[in-house]
């Protein structure tokens, strides 16, 4: 007879097992962080951590958003547009008072969830390829953002901007809250369905999992996260800008790929996405400190995508 572990012990072991295959990434990340802290000792202070996480935070959010969609065997080319929509909605809806701010942020995220859910519904129920549906949606969502605000404008309450992007690590705190929320979701049947539907959709369907619902949920959460990234960017810049999110589409894919999500679904983890985005952020900062011009970032980003995918393929072949 086997030893039956307690529920908490089993849960902890399952969570730990999901680090499998990612230790290399975490080690690389630790080394790079150490290098960065060595180059820039100012990192190791509240202010340093605050400033660093503020740059990283939006990328981390869209990396999680992209990973969720890629887990489902899709790809989301509308993430940048959704972030843009998030900024203009935030700059329009978020009021001066605390209540107004709360309602505005909630409304913005809700619209992001609805947009993502709609895209997910089209993909899941009509069987259309994600790449082309999200491409078309990027026009629809981007167009909606332009309707709300044809050019950068609007404003965010000063106290909110100060709270989110002032000299304190609020961003880090929110990120941890999001990770905890995901951990809770993952401990529900729906969360398990999302992972299973990504891993083996046909098998999950035969096991009685509502695969369509899992897909739609993944896209909806993804849309909500992208819209919230928009709220944060608006707080950073103090205004809404319909086009500001566009570069984030590529960065989200880079980070998700670095975090280990396969291109045909499955295998990705949220912690991987966060680690991938952190890796990207640290690399950018290290390059800055080494005195490379900002455009070198583009070249670096392109090269590391290819390197990451190439190494992954070669490792799979060797295995």
């Amino acid at each position: 007879m086997r030893q039956v572990p307690s529920g908490a012990a089993l849960h902890a072991r399952l969570i730990w097992r999901r680090n499998r295959g990612q230790i290399g990434l975490f080690v690389l990340l630790a080394l790079l962080l150490a290098l960065y802290a060595f180059l820039h000792p100012g990192l190791l202070s509240w202010a340093g951590i605050a400033r660093f996480t503020q740059n990283w935070f939006p990328v981390a959010l869209v990396a999680i958003a992209q990973t969720l969609v890629m887990l489902m065997g899709g790809i989301d080319l509308a993430i940048g547009a959704t972030v843009g929509l998030g900024t203009v909605l935030a700059a329009t809806l978020v009021g001066e008072s605390a209540l107004g701010a709360g309602l505005g942020i909630t409304a913005t995220v809700a619209i992001g969830v609805a947009a993502g859910g709609l895209v997910g519904t089209i993909v899941a129920l009509f069987g259309l390829p994600a790449i082309i549906v999200t491409l078309a949606s990027s026009f629809l969502i981007g167009g909606a953002a332009l309707l709300v605000m044809p050019r950068p404008g609007g404003s965010m309450p000063g106290w909110l901007s100060e709270g989110l992007v002032g000299v304190h690590p609020t961003a880090l705190l929110i990120l941890i809250l999001i990770l905890v929320a995901w951990r809770v979701l993952r401990a529900t049947p729906l969360g398990l369905s999302i992972d299973a539907a990504g891993d083996n959709p046909a098998g999950a369907f035969r096991s009685g999992v509502n695969v369509a619902l899992a897909r739609i949920a993944a896209y909806a959460i993804s849309g909500g996260l992208a819209a919230f990234a928009g709220v944060y960017v608006a707080a950073q810049t103090g205004a809404g800008d319909p086009l500001i999110g566009n570069p984030l589409t590529l960065q989200s894919i880079t980070a998700a790929v670095l975090g280990g999500v396969g291109f045909l679904g499955g295998q990705g983890t949220i912690r991987g996405a966060v680690a991938g985005s952190l890796l990207l952020a640290v690399l950018v900062n290290v390059m800055f400190f080494l005195g490379l011009p900002p455009v070198a970032q583009y070249v670096m980003q392109g090269l590391i995508i290819v390197a990451a995918m190439g190494i992954k393929r070669l490792r799979e072949r060797a295995a």
Partner: peptide, 17 residues
């Protein structure tokens, strides 16, 4: 407006699909 242009464009692709 550019916004409507993008929406018409995206909606058309999606519609035809």
């Amino acid at each position: 407006s550019p916004g409507w242009r993008a929406i018409l464009f995206g909606g058309l692709i999606l519609g035809l699909l």
